[in-house]
């Protein structure tokens, strides 16, 4: 057993030679990913996510800085790193079109050093896991984009990698195929804890659904890093609830609610009365120091003769976090599209 970090990067920079001037794709990235962690790099196109993955998967040398995978140096210990990692990239049409799906997977099982019989067993297992049984003997060139990406995903699991890199895995997939792929990823994690994932994506939902921690990246730098909850709290420290009541509370009304311990503020919600003209219903926007103060609010409302008819927590999205950090949204640089 080893106590090594799954991924450890310090000051990783990458500068591409270009005319009229060099382009800095990564500007000194520091990153630690624990074994068993699902980690996301979230950022718009051109943020440097793929460049970082290329360096970590030994496809590209950093201009400066150090990076280690499972304790092995990405510059000089590539053969050892390649034993414990695998990579799946999305949005491409790669594959030996004249081989069948099963043949292509078997071929890679051999490149990963699996004995022939074990290779076939693993291939058939992955074909079943990814739901490609019907296409198993189909030539790769006849597969749809989604099927190709599932094949690509199966290839990425052939060696049961200790660290799996997914680079925009659902790019270009339809809704169902993307959902399938995310489910396969989560199932892979659930099957054996300890597996590490580094995902790059510009889909907020995908990052939130799959990742324990997320780094928001832009222009080659990590701007913020934490759990999705921690990131949200960067832009909204308090918990904000929208509370709908059947009538205004008596004995001090909204002001009394606002004076409760743990309540930072209580004001009528922007949309005011919730139920049209003539109704006594009222909506409040209540800011709490933390969620535990909600109990006293609900109790106080009841004591003042009102009944709770609706309750919703208002949370900022990861895009709100990005906007707060960068001053622009994803769509300002690249057409933002929802996760498929």
């Amino acid at each position: 057993m080893s106590e090594e970090l799954a991924i450890h990067a310090r000051g990783v920079t990458r500068v591409y030679k270009a005319k009229p001037s060099p382009v800095t794709a990564l500007g000194g990235v520091d990153l630690d990913v624990e074994p068993g962690e699902y980690f996301g790099l979230l950022g718009p196109n051109g943020a440097g996510k793929t460049t970082l993955i290329k360096i970590l998967t030994t496809l590209l040398l950093p201009t400066s800085g150090t990076a280690r995978i499972a304790g092995f140096d990405v510059v000089n210990e590539t053969a050892k790193i390649r034993r414990v990692i695998n990579m799946v990239a999305g949005g491409e049409q790669s594959g030996y079109g004249l081989l069948t799906l099963r043949e292509q997977l078997w071929m890679f099982s051999q490149f990963y050093g699996l004995p022939a019989r074990e290779g076939w067993r693993r291939v058939d297992e992955l074909i079943e896991i990814t739901g490609l049984q019907e296409q198993r003997d189909q030539k790769v060139r006849t597969l749809s984009t989604g099927q190709r990406q599932k094949l690509n995903f199966a290839r990425g699991l052939l060696n049961d990698p200790w660290v799996l890199f997914l680079d925009e895995p659902t790019l270009g997939l339809d809704v169902a195929a993307a959902r399938d792929l995310r489910e396969h990823t989560l199932a892979w994690k659930a099957a054996a804890p300890g597996r590490t994932l580094l995902l790059t994506t510009h889909y907020m939902v995908e990052a939130e659904q799959l990742c324990d921690r997320i780094a928001i990246v832009d222009r080659g730098k990590i701007l913020a890093l934490g759990t999705p909850e921690e990131l949200r709290r960067r832009v909204q420290a308090e918990s904000i609830f929208r509370i709908e009541l059947d009538r205004l509370p008596a004995n001090g009304g909204i002001a009394a609610i606002g004076a409760l311990p743990g309540v930072l503020s209580a004001v009528p919600a922007d949309d005011g009365v919730a139920d049209g003209a003539g109704s006594d219903r009222v909506a409040l926007k209540v800011a709490l120091a933390d969620d535990s103060a909600l109990t006293s609010v609900v109790t106080a409302v009841a004591e003042r003769g009102s009944s709770l008819v609706g309750l919703a927590k208002s949370e900022p999205s990861l895009e709100d976090v990005f906007v707060e950090l960068v001053g622009r949204g994803f769509g300002d640089e690249d057409e933002a599209d929802p996760a498929p």
Binding site: S2, G71, A79, K80, V84, D160, W162, A192
Partner: peptide, 12 residues
Amino acid sequence: MAVIERPATVEG
């Protein structure tokens, strides 16, 4: 449930 760990030795 099996927990995946990095092998103690990794060959080139």
